[in-house]
Design a binder for these strands. Structure first.
Length: 297
DNA sequence: GGAAGTCAAGTCTCG
DNA sequence: CGAGACTTGACTTCC
């Protein structure tokens, strides 16, 4: 079991690895400066993770406008920052860390609009390029949601599957789908994974908001089979409701009692868990300390 | 220097 | 049918 957090820690580590800027102030110089600063911060963040036994980490976008028409070719960015990519990749591999990425709401491969799909392909290829550049194996995943429904969910699923087959191989091998809280729940994801080879990231919080009464332990048993040796251990996203906020709002900070209950509930030690919690590394540290105390890690 | 307004992109829901 | 939510702060401009 590995524990991790998402992207942009800034208080403990003292930098942000996901700095960006407005399109109106776009320049190649600005891109290169930002990427360099983000990569340097990523290096510090990875160091922090290793020191604290947080061996799972979700990289937030560190290349602004990665898939935008005006952006610098990835290979150029890669060669300019060759040393940083090499160093960071080595650090990750040597410490047996696992990396994930999660492009946002605009990456949708089942849209009926061709240009939406095509932009999404570019985004995914850029993400896969980064993981390839770091020389990470295919346990380093890119997770996305199934997409939109467009008034016909079966058709939407079919379109997901046929477009998935059109993706380049290095993307396909890394792509995993995640159940969401409004449209495609776990059962929908299973419909897809039973037909094409794609593992499912189980989002526990989303599942609590949209499900078909499957218990968590039951789900983990089912999902295990979809993760091959090459794919690595099953991945879980874990969070909980922010008290007295809109339903679905991720919590600001971990409620350790809820985490303890979840850990005792799942009983198994093979999933790798990303905490999607807004104070990032702070909650992750609390979680890892607890797991070390009880000897689950 | 601080406050207010704005931000590449898609889709769904609500008024 | 158009605006707002999503997420979420941080960038940018304006005073």
């Amino acid at each position: 079991m590995k524990i991790g957090f998402v992207g942009s820690a800034n208080t403990t580590i003292g930098c942000r690895p996901d700095k960006t800027f407005r399109l109106t102030s776009y320049s190649e110089k600005r891109v290169l400066e930002t990427v360099k600063s983000n990569l340097e911060c990523l290096k510090d963040t990875i160091t922090f993770c290793i020191q604290n036994n947080l061996l799972f980490y979700r990289i937030a976008d560190f290349i602004p406008f990665l898939s935008h028409k005006t952006s610098i070719p990835w290979e150029t960015i890669g060669s300019i920052n060759f040393d940083l990519f090499t160093t960071i990749g080595k650090m990750i591999r040597k410490s047996n860390m696992r990396i994930a990425m999660h492009p946002g709401q605009y990456t949708i491969i089942n849209s009926p609009k061709e240009d939406v799909v095509s932009n999404s392909f570019t985004e995914l290829m850029g993400n896969a390029w980064i993981l390839d550049k770091l020389k990470l194996d295919n346990t380093a995943k890119i997770q996305i949601h199934v997409g939109g429904v467009y008034e016909d969910k079966d058709e939407a699923k079919n379109r997901f599957m046929s477009n998935f087959e059109k993706l380049p191989n290095n993307v396909k091998k890394r792509l995993v789908i995640e159940n969401d809280d409004r449209l495609f729940d776990l059962r929908d994801c299973l419909d897809i994974s039973n037909q094409i080879e794609i593992p499912i990231v189980f989002d526990v919080f989303h599942h609590s908001l949209k499900n078909n009464n499957e218990s968590i332990i039951e789900v983990l048993g089912i999902l295990e089979d979809f993760w091959s040796i090459e794919d690595g251990n099953p991945m879980i996203d874990w969070s909980h409701q922010e008290p007295s906020a809109r339903i679905g709002r991720h919590t600001n900070t971990i409620d350790l009692n809820l985490f303890k209950a979840f850990i005792s509930d799942i009983r198994v030690n093979n999933p790798d868990i990303i905490l999607e919690i807004r104070d990032k590394e702070k909650s992750a540290l609390k979680a890892i300390r607890y797991l070390q105390e009880i000897g689950r890690i």
